[in-house]
Computed example of a mutant assay.
Amino acid sequence: MSFTGLFVPLVTPFTADGELAAEALEALAHAVLDDGAAGIVALGTTAEPATLTAAERRRIAEICAGACEQHGAQLIVGTGSNSTAGSIEALTELDPRAAAALTVVPYYTRPSEDGVVEHFRRLAAASPVPLIVYNVPCRTGRSLGADTLGRLARIPNVAGFKHPVGGIDEATMDFLSTRPADCAVLAGDDLYTAPLLALGATGAILASATVATRAYADLVASWCGSPDDDARRLHHALLPLSRALFAEPNPAVIKAVLAAHGRIPSPHVRLPLLPAGSAATAAALDAAGSIRIREAPADAGSLV
């Protein structure tokens, strides 16, 4: 199974009193798929999964699976932790409609790179669906070298990587030049999407795309098709929006924008996150307002 194009990691909408806003989540899921996303990521970082109950997580996965099923799109579900045994147990409980599981590199305990490889070897052997390794050193405290990335890519049932490493480093360039042809690499740093696609990434998982799905779908399609001036123009035009949406801890500003646009019932986040400040919200709304997207079918020139 290949993973290409744009995947949108959805926020978890809450009501003003902090309850799951299921109807708003379903509307968001259909909206991003209508606007060109290849699939959805449920229960990624953007969904605030650490603050959700088990029942809420199941409900969110069900809603997203239903939307993907209706659109013929792929569902990636975030799961796993820094416990190998616990991660295996979580994988066995995945919604059967999931196309893949987004599984994070073990965090906090900072295992050796050999330990990381063995962790994923065991997860991949037990998982009913392919794994996408979530390599996010700023959150896990564990960087991985190109050799380790290559070893992970060759584990049976590892389909690819979400790769937000904070820039385009030497390990990234080496890995992209030597990875197996059937290994997907999905850009995960919104600000560095175009450079990673230019180096050969197959797609992207971008939180900013919840706000401007069609533009980001165009961006990914432009680079994956034939990198040219249109793709570079799209990237440069979207930089201010991505920067503004990540001015405070994700997804506070994204939720503030979605609430201001009437797409979710409130900007509520759960502690330890705090709501976005007024200045950050205003800046993000201004950046979003500067983007006009045609309602016609997407093409590389639809962002002006």
Rank of each mutant, 00 (worst) to 15 (best):
L241K: 08
I63K: 05
A50F: 15
S2K: 13
T84V: 14
K162Q: 04
L10D: 01
T45L: 14
P9T: 10
V116S: 03
A184Q: 03
L28C: 10
T84I: 08
A27M: 06
A276R: 06
G80H: 10
L258C: 04
T92Q: 11
P195V: 12
R232I: 14
L271D: 12
V136K: 07
S302R: 07
I254R: 05
V158F: 00
A90F: 07
L43V: 10
Q74A: 14
L303A: 03
F161S: 02
P130F: 12
D35H: 10
T79D: 09
S278G: 09
L149V: 01
E69Q: 08
A198T: 01
T53N: 12
V41W: 03
F7W: 06
P13D: 11
T140P: 06
E69K: 06
S278L: 12
P156C: 03
T45M: 10
I291F: 09
V32G: 11
P13I: 04
G289S: 07
H261N: 12
H236T: 15
V253N: 00
F161G: 01
G18D: 10
V105F: 01
C224T: 15
L20H: 03
H30M: 08
E295M: 14
D114V: 13
G66V: 10
V253E: 00
A159W: 05
A27H: 03
L20M: 05
L152S: 03
A300F: 03
L199P: 00
I264Q: 00
L152A: 05
E118K: 12
H71R: 14
R263Y: 01
